[in-house]
């Protein structure tokens, strides 16, 4: 009689400030697969967890935004390397979460890995493409450079648990921002595994902070938080979008609005998402002998 080995099940936690923790509230919620089967419990983050995540992101901002573009590019490329090594795990988790199988799920996971590579290559080109030398009418040297906006709150897409998440997170990081991400509410498990990849890659702690839980509960706190500079509403529940945008006005946040329906993430991206989270800084200096 062959003995069936019992698998070691994973505890899915929040990822805040480079550490995996349960919600300070002690709450969790059951996550089911596409066919309704129980997969695991995920931590149900609270307002306090969201605030801790913002603090961690703010703390990490000077280091990450101040790193060289070459360094950031290598760090993001390393994320792709580590994801490749966990490809089977991502296939299983995305398949369970989204109910897709075979070549379809392979293409989703492969595209997610390739997306890191694409954005990794952008880090040292953003300033070249979006910056400018300004031919002002006077004896001044004047140039403009894009700089990261700061701490970006991301409401990740609700359907595409991994590719969608990577598609919204990678550009934010490539531009030098730090992030607080609220994962897909009902499909959070691939996101937590991605956090494990980030934790073991060279992304400094606090650069990405991942919360799982109720998007509707967490998003208002992020939209109103004075230390959040921008918010991506892509995964915001439709009935909340207008109110979140209104709330964001309280501190003049940059708002990336949600598209009418979730985009096809398998399409090759453009630089819209890089542009959305940079500020143009113009510097002047006189010329003279």
């Amino acid at each position: 009689m062959s003995e069936q080995r019992v698998a070691v099940a994973k505890t899915y936690k929040l990822y805040v400030g480079g550490a995996f923790s349960r919600s300070e509230s002690g709450r969790s919620y059951p996550v089911t697969g596409a066919r309704g089967e129980f997969l695991a419990h995920a931590a149900q983050a609270s307002r306090k967890d969201a605030r801790d995540a913002v603090s961690a992101a703010r703390k990490a901002f000077p280091g990450w935004s101040g790193a060289t573009a070459y360094n950031r590019g290598q760090v993001l490329y390393r994320v792709a390397e580590l994801m490749e090594g966990r490809r089977d795990q991502f296939l299983a988790e995305v398949s369970a979460a989204e109910g897709t199988n075979g070549r379809r799920v392979q293409s989703l996971v492969d595209a997610a890995i390739d997306r890191w590579v694409w954005y990794a290559g952008w880090t040292d080109k953003i300033a070249t493409v979006l910056g400018s030398a300004n031919p002002v009418a006077g004896p001044y040297f004047c140039f403009s450079v894009p700089e990261p906006t700061g701490v970006v709150a991301i409401l990740a897409p609700q359907s595409s648990s991994l590719l969608g998440l990577v598609s919204v997170l990678a550009p934010v990081l490539a531009a030098g921002n730090t992030a607080v991400v609220v994962a897909s509410q009902d499909r959070p498990l691939p996101a937590v595994t991605l956090a494990e990849v980030l934790a073991t890659s060279d992304v400094p702690g606090g650069v990405v902070n991942l919360l799982t839980g109720r998007t509707a509960e967490l998003s208002p706190w992020l939209a109103s938080h004075a230390d959040v500079n921008a918010i991506d509403l892509t995964g915001a529940p439709a009935p909340l979008r207008t109110e979140l945008e209104r709330t964001a006005a309280g501190t003049v946040k940059r708002v990336l609005r949600a598209p009418a329906s979730e985009p096809d993430w398998t399409r090759t991206p453009d630089i819209t998402r890089l542009r959305a989270f940079v500020e143009t800084k113009t510097v002047w200096h006189p010329m003279g002998a």
């Binding site: 031919p135 002002v136 006077g138 003049v252 113009t282």
Partner: peptide, 26 residues
């Protein structure tokens, strides 16, 4: 800050982007 003037101040030109960070607008 969106505009930094070094050893000068209050210079403007149509070819030089102007605008703010944070609560100075976007």
């Amino acid at each position: 800050a969106g505009v930094v003037w070094a050893n000068t101040f209050n210079r403007f030109d149509p070819s030089a982007p102007f605008g703010g960070y944070r609560e100075s607008g976007f």
